[in-house]
Amino acid sequence: MSQLILGVGDLGASKTSGGSVKTFALGSCVSVLLLDPKVRAVGMVHVALPESKINQTKAQSKPGYFADTGIPTLLQEMAKLGCNPRGQGMIVKLCGGANVMDPNDTFNIGKRNALAVKKVLWKYGMGAVSEDLGGNFSRTVTVFVDTGDVLLSSPGRPDWKL
């Protein structure tokens, strides 16, 4: 079994049978999951911030850090595995984007990340079939190559599927 583990701003794809891609503790970060049932490949990017314009150097070294550079780079990565480079035929799932208990919503990076990710996906004509965004808790997420199942966990809560 090969498991790919992604840190903040990392992205990765796999079509190894029995394999999975996992990321730990998404707080306000958003995980974009792309599943290609035809090629039997899965991909994930762990997005930390909406837009790369605040730090181009970072966008170069870690494109997955930002929504606007992360999704195109993930698509390129998946194209290497034989997937359509424009994401055609792919299933999209989203999770993360947790919020702070903030009455004024000034710290709403989680919400802005979720919105930015959706905007980029729209450009490709892609939309999520299922999502688990927001809330005041962190999420650990794993996607399995064979089944395309997405498993989520958070301390103090029973595990759930997306």
């Binding site: 707080g27 208990m101 990076i109 989680g110 005041n136 962190s138």
Partner: peptide
């Protein structure tokens, strides 16, 4: 720190921000 996914388990993000 908690927004960055670095909490101490179940209490992560379960506190109010004072604006």
């Amino acid at each position: 720190a908690m927004m960055g996914g670095c909490g101490t388990g179940s209490d992560t993000l379960q506190y109010n921000l004072d604006p």
